[in-house]
């Protein structure tokens, strides 16, 4: 039990309450503490890189203060490679949203087919598992051969990388519905739509969400990498690569910080909330 709630618990015992409310303030200090801890680890690793760079006498490694100042300037409107950081971010997020959206739609449809068709499941899952082993960047030559260089190739690479976790999570989620729920559906002679709506979908929703989460991370990571190689003229990955080419190391690192912040934002503000809401609506709390 957190010390923050000790006085509230004592008061409840003294007043003979069976059930009582506690303040939620305790969550923030703990969360803040975790964030400070994570930041400390990152800064420690950064310092180690700085020291190593000084020892080897290479190019001066940017300090956190340098990168902070550069980030501040970029956020305040400084141009990087002819565009604002907002334009670069919007360009990347547009590709990411398109590629991820296509992967989610395709993945859920394929997963539904595999998960609900007994004879296809084994073959489909085995081939998806093999296909999942292909590293995201290995799709680059195929993308260029099929679509040339540019946006479509980048989106293709994102789709191919984000697809397998969605397919696997959807299909295996549908196959891991507790047997007793299926027996209930059989006994009630539910039609295909009611069976899907009342039993299969809610049973597998959390697993599908996990797949979407993994796919989101895959898509984001490969997008940045693909932008470095597949010949786009704007985007965060392109900025990292082009800034490095122009020896703008500080700006390059500032772009990496922005990438991390966007990922964190989605993880904390979007997925965690969706998962909490889903758990609550599925009656899986408590």
């Amino acid at each position: 039990m957190s010390k923050d709630h000790r006085s509230e618990v004592d008061a409840a015992i003294d007043e003979g309450k069976g059930v009582f409310e506690i303040s939620r303030k305790g969550r923030w200090p703990r969360y803040a503490l975790d964030m400070v801890g994570a930041l400390a680890i990152i800064l420690a690793l950064w310092s180690a890189a700085l020291m190593y760079s000084n020892l080897t006498g290479g190019v001066a490694f940017p300090t956190p203060l340098d990168v902070g100042a550069s980030l501040w300037g970029l956020l305040a409107g400084d141009k990087l490679l002819g565009a604002s950081i907002y334009q670069h971010t919007i360009a990347s997020m547009g590709r990411w949203a398109l590629g991820y959206g296509i992967a989610v739609l395709l993945g859920i449809v394929i997963g539904l087919v595999l998960g609900t068709t007994g004879w296809l499941y084994g073959a489909g899952m085995n081939s998806t598992n093999v296909y999942q082993l292909i590293p995201g960047l290995a799709w680059i030559p195929i993308a260029i051969l099929l679509f040339g260089i540019g946006n479509i190739a980048t989106v293709f690479i994102i789709v191919m990388t984000a697809l397998p976790p969605v397919v696997i999570a959807t299909a295996s989620g549908l196959r891991s519905v507790p047997p007793v729920y299926l027996k209930v559906a059989d006994m009630l002679e539910l039609g295909p739509w009611d069976r899907f709506r009342l039993v299969l979908l809610p049973s597998s929703a959390l697993q599908v969400l996990t797949g979407l989460r993994v796919a989101l991370g895959n898509a984001w990571r490969v997008l940045i990498a693909a932008e470095m190689v597949v010949g786009v003229a704007m985007g965060l990955g392109f900025s990292i690569f082009a800034a490095q080419g122009a020896l703008m190391w500080t700006e390059s690192l500032a772009c990496i910080v922005i990438i991390c912040l966007i990922g964190l934002l989605f993880e904390r503000l979007v997925f965690t909330r969706i998962e909490d809401g889903m758990r609550s609506s599925l009656g899986l709390e408590g």
Binding site: V180, Y181, V184, E189, D194, S281, G283
Partner: peptide, 28 residues
Amino acid sequence: RPSRELGMVFQEDSLLPWLTVRHNVAMA
């Protein structure tokens, strides 16, 4: 095959957790 003429009460918890008690009964 299973049918609504043959109602089964299972040993394990078989209520659908995402539905209220009323909805669980109403669906049957």
